[in-house]
Nucleic acid binder design. Structure first.
Lengths: 320, 320
DNA sequence: CTGAAAGCGCTTACAG
DNA sequence: CTGAAAGCGCTTACAG
């Protein structure tokens, strides 16, 4: 795993080097570098000169070790294949940048073991906090770290076996809006295309049932787009971008394709065929919200763990 | 910028704490933690016991400071909006994980100032190397860092004003294949939709001209998809996903839409309408290649800077 | 087999 | 206004 050879870098000048070149004590260099008051303009100039001559740049890692914090957050994502996740990242970064943090990032391919390894590695580097799009696995391994003061915010899905903040889209409300819209357009037998288990499916199905109420109309659960034709539905709600894509492929050559509603907007949504409606939400906002919550935790917010739902809205598109 | 309040973490046990609890010297704890030979099974057991009792986890940041390296690379991306970039990231991560590094990541919104700030911040933390999808701005600011031993590999675009490794798709070859294909299908007046300046456009246009040769057929440069109709072309090559999307939107209601070829594959490419062909390349491979090159540099590869082109291939799709 | 000392590059807490 | 000492949490180089 660690097969690096020790590389001989051109030696970097340190504060000690600057001090001896300027003919002052280490502490004086530190004062100048940190802009602390109480240094003669003359001394300051000498130090600044030495810094420039040597091309000195303070080693932030050393400073942070002494300071006790790392000014670093970690972002752990289940997969870079989901288009939304890069947008979540972007939202996190906006906040991170504002507050002077740097971000470790890593992905897990939805494997619990990789997630644990990555999260604990980041904790061993003493990140101040972690934002995680969790795998379905258990998360007790984080308890000791949370106890030790590491902030943890989950995104898109709640974690299992640990109490922590979570920020996600209002899936239930989105599903309700989708089903209501489909019913209004005359659909009475609607398919649901998504994994049989998992948080997303459970929430979406709950929303669907709420919207169906006592209408008597039926919801048909499908695990594969291949079953779309035989299921005899006139519309389908897809749980993810991937499912939406599968439904589109399966319907490409259909004489009467079903009305497709996808959960989550995507870049080419307005130019696919057959046309799709989407339950859109703002993944950038999810990232921002999570990061702001985390920064709040790190700066003293001791209120109980929160669950924040970001609104969804239906973007309906008629058949082209 | 840095408005964090110092948070009181539950004190983390250190090696010193473990040592005193186990009744041994610090160095012995270090030996056990590092699996160094020459410790009695009995002593080992005592130390391990103390570690477990205290919930000790070695502070990697402290270890790395002493060691002189950080086992950290940085990835700087111009934008998370380009779908390919998350895939490049994934490729980098595969290699990073294998070699036991951790990755700082950040985006620049294609702003040179942000890139410089981010890169120098990472360098101040003493990253071992940097992988950068560069903004169009100048990159001399990196010279001192490269001199000091920071490895730098650029991706997707070469940097300006600094010599360094670069990994990118074979844009010219891709454009050649696209134009050749279009000519074979009877197109004689072909549009090019892309920014008027920049590396990508220059390479693509060069490839187009090579393929057109002395055919006498014409290439029409367009900066906006809105000009597509009036330009009187029967086909168009789009320089990026964004341009492809614009071309699709502009052609959605056209009676006779142009044949569209997009540079860069994307998730829904097979279900859009009108249909598009794409010049595909593997962004994951680009990331892997860049990371492997960088790791090579960090482990002693002193050969001159390289330019590596990853192959492209045309995925042709007939009108639906 | 085990440990006391010095040091990575900085900051903190005190003196002068 | 300036500096010598101690320390952040580890490892390195040496002794015993």
């Amino acid at each position: 795993m660690s097969d690096q050879v020790q590389v001989v870098h051109a030696a970097r000048p340190t504060m000690k080097d600057v001090a001896s070149r300027a003919g002052v004590a280490l502490k004086t260099v530190s004062r100048v570098v940190n802009g602390e008051p109480g240094v003669t303009p003359e001394t300051t100039k000498r130090v600044l000169g030495a810094i420039a001559d040597l091309g000195f740049r303070r080693n932030e890692s050393a400073r942070l070790l002494r300071t006790g914090r790392t000014a670093t957050l970690g972002f752990i994502v289940d997969s870079w294949r989901e288009g939304e996740n890069a947008a979540v990242y972007h939202g996190i970064e906006i906040v991170v940048r504002e507050h002077g943090y740097l971000l470790y990032a890593g992905s897990t391919d939805a494997e619990p073991e990789l997630e644990e390894r990555l999260a604990l590695t980041m904790c061993a580097r003493r990140v101040d906090g972690l934002i995680i799009i969790p795998t379905p696995g258990p998360h007790e391994y984080l308890r000791a770290e949370i106890q030790a003061g590491v902030g943890c915010v989950f995104v898109m899905r709640p974690p299992s076996l640990v109490r922590a903040d979570v920020v996600l889209p209002d899936e239930r409300g989105g599903a309700r809006a989708a089903i209501t819209h489909l019913i209004e357009h005359g659909h009475q037998r609607i398919g649901f295309l998504g994994p049989p288990a998992g948080h997303r499916s459970a929430e979406l199905l709950a929303g669907c049932r709420e919207a169906l109420g006592s209408s008597g109309y039926s919801l048909v659960e499908l695990d594969s787009a291949a079953d779309l034709a035989s299921a005899d539905v006139t519309a389908v709600l897809c749980a993810s971008q991937e499912m939406t894509r599968e439904a589109l492929r399966a319907s490409a050559d259909a004489a009467a394709p079903p009305a497709i509603v996808g959960f989550g907007d995507f870049d080419f949504a307005d130019v696919v065929s057959p046309s799709v409606s989407v339950v859109a939400y703002d993944p950038v906002l999810i990232g921002r919200t999570a990061a702001e919550l985390l920064v709040g935790r790190l700066t003293g917010d001791r209120t109980p763990p929160r669950r924040i739902e970001v609104p969804t809205r239906l973007i309906a598109r008629l058949p082209r």
